[in-house]
């Protein structure tokens, strides 16, 4: 069994009377991409800042590679790369000089520094932009530079706060590819984003927060199964829709049935086996079923079902 890369244990952070993070616990393994999702004010950024050693919890503990973020912040920083949602490059420096500075700041020297800067720039696709002023980059290239800077000290855990915010679709896809490559290289990635479709294609696991509390955590598939006890089924039949409607409305586990543009749609509370049984019964009842489509719960559906969107 692999040792957890990150273990969060009963983390709690108060701002005055507001509880930003409320007894939060979760863990993640190396090489996994974990989506950190929740409505605005759910405590995502606060948690990420605590994990990056930039804030302190009022109680609880977080361990990264077995090191406490409370007790050994300097050692923790060596294995954490934090990409905040703000990026403000220095004026009068080009892309390579910017990376070179951060490599020096991370204690890299000589040829090691030069080769690290080059490989980080190359990995993030910045080769052809190396002599461009860091302040003159597009948003997408700026995020690549931000990521390259975060990778310089070869962290084992990347904490990315809204990295895809403001990126165009192409830049987003390219950024996603970079994250996949990093994950394949064994790095753990904790990523928050408001673009759930984006996360669902990138992440292995999710941690869902609301009002500072953990709502769900684990592999997307497992959580989807939880949610799918309540999934939507679309049915299209040839022939009389009313007959089909009368059939389905009396079936067990079928709720909230409605007909929309000749298609039947209902909430089904059973699992996959129960859905197959229902389809068998429909065919046995001489319904000419053209389409029977239980909708797989995507991250958006999970999010909407699990959170109430309450703000604090």
């Amino acid at each position: 069994m692999t040792e957890a890369l990150l273990e969060v244990d009963n983390l709690r952070r108060m701002y005055g009377k507001v509880c930003a993070v409320d007894n939060l616990s979760f863990s993640m393994d190396p090489g996994r991409i974990v989506g950190f999702i929740g409505p605005n004010g759910a405590g995502k950024t606060t948690t990420m800042r605590i994990l990056a050693t930039l804030d302190l919890p009022d109680s609880g503990e977080a361990m990264i590679n077995g090191l406490s973020v409370l007790v050994e912040p300097r050692k923790v920083r060596e294995s954490v790369g934090f990409m905040s949602d703000q990026f403000q490059p220095y004026p009068n420096l080009d892309v390579m000089q910017y990376l070179d500075f951060f490599a020096r700041a991370n204690g890299l020297t000589g040829k090691e520094r030069i080769s690290t800067v080059r490989s980080a720039a190359s990995f993030c696709g910045l080769d052809s932009f190396s002599s461009r002023p860091a302040t003159g980059l597009s948003k997408g290239m700026g995020q690549r530079l931000h990521l390259a800077k975060t990778l310089l000290h070869d962290p084992s855990l990347l904490i990315l706060d809204e990295p895809a915010s403001g990126l165009d679709p192409r830049a987003r896809i390219e950024f996603r590819e970079l994250l996949r490559e990093l994950s394949a290289a064994g790095k753990g990635i904790l990523i928050s984003s408001h673009i759930l479709a984006e996360l669902s294609e990138t992440c292995d696991d999710v941690v869902v927060l609301e009002q500072g509390k953990l709502v769900a955590s684990g592999p997307i598939g497992d959580i989807a199964k939880e949610v799918q006890r309540h999934h939507t089924v679309h049915v299209r039949v040839l022939g009389d829709v009313e007959v089909a409607q009368k059939f389905f409305i009396v079936q067990p586990r079928v709720e909230d049935l409605e007909v929309l543009e000749g298609r039947i749609q209902f909430d089904f509370t059973g699992d996959d086996d129960a859905a197959v049984d229902l389809l068998k019964r429909a065919i046995a009842a001489d319904l000419r079923v053209l389409e029977f489509a239980p909708q797989a719960a995507d991250l958006e559906a999970i999010f909407m079902r699990m959170t109430e969107g309450s703000l604090q």
């Binding site: 930039l54 920083r77 954490v80 403000q88 800077k149």
Partner: peptide, 13 residues
């Protein structure tokens, strides 16, 4: 401004 100081503090500086 803009959180640059935090980015610096995450390095060895």
């Amino acid at each position: 401004s803009g959180g640059m100081d935090e980015q610096l503090l995450l390095t060895g500086l």
